[in-house]
């Protein structure tokens, strides 16, 4: 496996995130199905579409929420998004979240599933810089997120506790061949 991919996986696991290489869409669906109990928020995304994930998930009997995220967000058990790219050094996924639905899917539910094409993992912040700059040049309004592991706090007696306001679990599924587009939105 590419060194960047192993580094990404290790870094993400170090901070309590789940990182799995999946061979195909069916494996991804199996992973999501095994970890999800309830409806799934699935905003439109190029990566998800390429992988045909939504159809597979519906066929697997998972309740898909595809509209009115504000009303449904609080009840959903999970959110599913497609990452723009990953950063190996820190185990970070970068998610263009200007679309409000992407933001809701990645903040409100307890679990957040992200599919990422491993070909889009760059080494570090330096390598991420030109991409981030380009993402800023593309449209005037930008809401961009670097996500590294689950939500955490140490505000009570400095004891690290996972899952305060954001997702308690972050699952990154590495699926080859779904997207080479760093700018997807």
């Amino acid at each position: 496996m590419d060194k960047k991919i192993t580094q990404f996986i290790q870094a993400l696991r170090n901070v309590g995130g789940v990182a799995e290489v999946v061979k195909n869409a069916a494996d991804a669906v199996a992973h999501i199905g095994a970890h999800l109990q309830g409806p799934l928020l699935a905003p439109d995304s190029h990566s998800l579409q390429q992988a045909g994930l939504k159809d597979f998930l519906s066929q697997a009997g998972i309740e898909m929420v595809c509209d009115d995220f504000r009303a449904n967000g609080a009840k959903a058990a999970g959110g599913l998004t497609g990452a723009n790219f990953g950063i190996a050094a820190t185990g970070t996924v970068v998610l263009e979240s200007t679309d409000e639905n992407v933001r809701i899917a990645s903040t409100l539910p307890e679990k957040h599933f992200v599919v990422l094409d491993p070909a889009k993992i760059v080494s570090d912040y330096n390598a991420a810089l030109p991409i981030v700059r380009k993402l800023h040049e593309q449209w005037p309004q930008v809401y961009l997120a670097y996500l590294t592991g689950p939500s955490r706090t140490a505000d009570i007696e400095r004891v690290l506790t996972i899952g305060v306001h954001g997702p308690r679990e972050l699952h990154v599924l590495l699926l080859e061949g779904i997207s080479s587009d760093f700018m997807e939105r």
Binding site: G91, T92, V132, Q141, V142, Y143, G149, S151
Partner: peptide
């Protein structure tokens, strides 16, 4: 090493 979230916000999203 890194915080869980870095959030970049520009303009009226």
């Amino acid at each position: 090493m890194v915080t869980s979230y870095i959030t970049w916000i520009r303009g009226a999203v």
